[in-house]
Amino acid sequence: MMPRKLRWILLCCLGLLLAGPLAAAPDATLHDDPAHPAAAPHWLRTELYFGMRPADRPRQLVSTAQWRKFLDEEVSPRFPDGLSVLEVYGQWRGKDQREIQRLPSKLLVLLHPDTPDSAAKIEAIRQAWKQRTGDQSVLRVTQAVEVSF
Results as ranks from 00 to 15, higher is better:
Gly51Ser: 11
Gly51Asn: 10
Met52Asn: 02
Arg53Leu: 13
Arg53Thr: 14
Ala55Cys: 05
Asp56Thr: 14
Gln60Ile: 10
Gln60Lys: 15
Gln60Ala: 15
Leu61Glu: 08
Val62His: 00
Thr64Cys: 05
Ala65Glu: 10
Gln66Thr: 08
Gln66Arg: 07
Gln66Ser: 09
Trp67Ile: 00
Lys69Val: 09
Phe70Gly: 05
Phe70Tyr: 02
Leu71Phe: 03
Leu71Glu: 07
Glu73Asp: 10
Glu74Asn: 06
Val75Asn: 04
Arg78Pro: 03
Arg78Phe: 04
Phe79Asp: 03
Asp81Ala: 15
Gly82Thr: 08
Gly82Ser: 08
Val85Ala: 04
Leu86Ala: 15
Leu86Arg: 15
Val88Trp: 05
Val88Ser: 11
Val88His: 07
Tyr89Leu: 14
Trp92Tyr: 13
Trp92Pro: 05
Arg93Lys: 07
Lys95Ile: 09
Lys95His: 11
Gln97Pro: 01
Arg98Ala: 13
Arg98Pro: 01
Glu99Val: 10
Glu99Ile: 06
Ile100Cys: 03
Gln101Ile: 11
Gln101Glu: 11
Pro104Trp: 02
Ser105Cys: 15
Ser105Phe: 07
Lys106Met: 14
Leu107His: 12
Leu108Tyr: 03
Leu110Phe: 10
Leu111Trp: 14
Leu111Phe: 12
Leu111Pro: 09
His112Gln: 13
Pro113His: 13
Asp114Arg: 02
Thr115Glu: 11
Pro116Lys: 02
Ala119Glu: 06
Ala120Tyr: 04
Lys121Ser: 10
Glu123Met: 12
